[in-house]
Design a binder for these strands. Structure first.
Ligand SMILES: [Mn+2]
Ligand SMILES: [Mn+2]
Ligand SMILES: [Zn+2]
Ligand SMILES: [Zn+2]
Lengths: 143, 143
DNA sequence: TATCATCTTGAGACGGCTTATCAATTTCAA
DNA sequence: TTGAAATTGATAAGCCGTCTCAAGATGATA
C-alpha cells in the first residue's frame, strides 16, 4: 500500500527532526491506525493485543500523541475517551454524533469553514485549529 | 437586579416541575453564577468560600448541572475542566479561544448555525446541541 | 405553626482516563 | 561493535467529576 508508505515517510521525517527513534511498536501502531477512521487508545490496545500481547497501553497513548504532533492524527474528546482521527487519508473533517447509538458521521462543509475564518478575522484572530461537533439523533434512533 | 430575579424565577419553575427544593446554597450559587460569562466549578468554589466556607465542591457541581437542566447554564469541556456558560443573559453562542493568552471571545453567527442544520438534515440527523470552538492567536499574541 | 416525608448537603471515597515514573531494553550514529 | 540516548511496559499517580450516606434543611399538609 503506497499510502501507508507515504505516512510512514511522514513519521520518519518527524522522528528524524526531533531525534526520536523508529521502533517496532511505532511501526505496528501506525499500520493499524491507518486502517481506521477514528479509534480510541483502548480500542487499539485490544486490537493489537493479538499481534503483540505485550504492547502496553501507555505506549499506545504515547504513540497516538506522537502521531498528532507529526500531523498524521488529530485528537478529539468525545464524551469521556479521546478519539484519534486519521486525518492523513481524509483530510480535515467535522462530526455528527448520534446521542442515541453513538454513530459518528464525518462531514466537510467549505461554506462553514469559510464563515469560521470570517468570524475569526472580524475578531482579530488567526485560526490554528477548530472543533465542530453536532450532537443529535440519527434517523434510526428517532423511533 | 431584575435580571437576576428573572433567572431566579426560571430556576423556581424548574424546581417546582421536578419536585426539587430551593435551598440557600442554590440561591447563593445562582447569584454568583449570573455575575460571570463562564466559570469552572473549582473557580466558583474558591469565590464562594468567602461567603460560605462550608459550601462543598460537590454541591457546586450538582448545582451547575442543575442550572444546565434548567436552561440557565451550558457546559462545555475546554481542556481538562468543564466550563459553565451563562446562556440566560447572552443566549447561545460559540467561542474563539486564544492559544497564546487564553482569552475567550464569544460570538454568534446565524449563517453558521443554519448551515449546521442543513448538514444535519442532509445526513438524517436532528440536532440537539452542538459545539463550535475556534482556536488561534489573538492580534496581541501574534507578535 | 408543627409534623415529617422527601430532598439536599458536605466530606470523603471512588472510578475512569491519561500521564508520570523508572528499571530494563532497544535503537542508531559513530 | 559500542554506548549514549531514546523507548518500552508495568504500574503508580493525578485529575476531574460523581457517588455514597448520615446529618440536616425544606415545604406541603394538617
Ligand atoms: Mn471543520
Ligand atoms: Mn453555535
Ligand atoms: Zn443513532
Ligand atoms: Zn492571545
Amino acid at each position: 500500500m503506497s499510502k501507508d508508505l507515504k505516512e510512514m515517510e511522514v513519521l520518519r521525517q518527524h522522528l528524524a527532526k526531533h531525534q526520536l527513534k523508529l521502533t517496532r511498536q511505532r511501526e505496528l501502531i501506525l499500520t493499524a491506525f491507518l486502517r481506521q477512521e477514528h479509534v480510541t487508545a483502548e480500542v487499539m490496545y485490544h486490537q493489537l493485543a493479538k499481534k503483540d500481547p505485550h504492547l502496553g497501553l501507555a505506549t499506545i497513548y504515547r504513540t497516538l500523541n506522537l502521531f498528532c504532533e507529526a500531523g498524521i492524527a488529530q485528537a478529539r474528546h468525545f464524551g469521556s475517551q479521546a478519539q484519534y482521527d486519521n486525518i492523513s487519508h481524509k483530510g480535515h473533517h467535522d462530526h455528527l454524533i448520534c446521542t442515541g447509538c453513538g454513530t459518528i458521521v464525518e462531514f466537510e462543509n467549505c461554506e462553514i469553514e469559510r464563515l469560521q475564518e470570517e468570524v475569526a478575522t472580524k475578531n482579530g484572530f488567526v485560526i490554528q485549529t477548530h472543533r465542530l461537533e453536532l450532537y443529535g439523533l440519527c434517523s434510526r434512533c428517532r423511533h
